[in-house]
Simulated scan of single mutants.
Amino acid sequence: MKLLIGNRNYSSWSMRPWLVLAHFGIPFEDEVLQLSGDGWRDVLARRSPTGKVPVLIDGDLVVPETIAIIEYLADLHPELRIWPEDISQRAQARAAAAEMHSAFQSIRSHAPMNLRGSHPGRVNVDTIAKDLHRIETLWGGLLTQSGGPFLFGEFTAADAMFAPVASRIRTYALPVSDLAAAYVEAIYSLPAFQEWLAMARKEPWVVDDDEIDVIQGRVAPGTLA
């Protein structure tokens, strides 16, 4: 089984199924497909049915799209409890994952994932206030219900879906409640997340489209080392 991923520092969608695979101990290998540089879009078009990452390859089966990959893994390994065991909690977890997949456009646009970066104060909180409020409401309700440290007590696919949001909160020092901050700490303490983070920090590549200083015009494209 192989997972095609983008640059670990920036590719939030790649991180999500990778965390599921790594945390639950499912044997796999990964391959990084660059999200910048000469001909990178052509490479993705050749390797991915959608021209995007992630893509899971399992024998002759090719599965694009993060949620589809996670659902396939959950079907393949029902014993692993990738989703919560309780049917009502499982429905809540899937609803949260689906919301993450379709919403939170402001925080994606104004606070791109950048695991190597530390940019406190660089994001105008007013531009993402609605998304932050919804994150607080969603996380707060689930964490209060479960008792933490993860949304449903133990780590599940729902947490994998929100891990990149936790990283954005850390990278840009976004103002959140103590409950949300504790959840961010729980994500960062997860061994699988730490493994991904360590590899991301070692990557030499820069994707200008995901660098806040380039986005906001502080530095010119192509000048970040």
Rank of each mutant, 00 (worst) to 15 (best):
L3I: 11
I5M: 04
I5P: 02
N9H: 02
S11Y: 09
S11N: 07
S11Q: 06
S12P: 08
M15G: 03
W18T: 08
V20R: 07
A22H: 10
H23S: 02
F24K: 10
G25Q: 10
I26L: 13
I26N: 12
D30R: 14
Q34G: 04
S36K: 10
D38A: 15
R41K: 15
R46E: 14
R46K: 15
P49M: 13
P49K: 04
G51T: 14
G51Y: 04
I57M: 09
E65L: 05
T66F: 04
I69V: 09
I70Q: 04
E71G: 07
E71T: 02
D75F: 06
D75I: 01
P78C: 10
E79W: 02
R81T: 08
I82D: 04
D86M: 10
I87N: 12
S88L: 13
S88A: 15
A95I: 13
A97T: 06
A103R: 04
F104C: 06
S106L: 07
I107K: 01
N114W: 06
G117H: 09
P120I: 14
V125D: 06
A129T: 05
D131I: 02
L138M: 13
G141S: 01
L142I: 01
L142D: 07
Q145V: 00
S146L: 01
F152G: 00
R168I: 08
R170H: 14
A173Q: 11
V176F: 06
A182R: 14
Y188C: 04
L190W: 00
Q194G: 14
Q194F: 03
W196H: 06
D210L: 15
D210M: 11
E211M: 08
I212A: 11
D213C: 12
Q216W: 05
G222T: 00
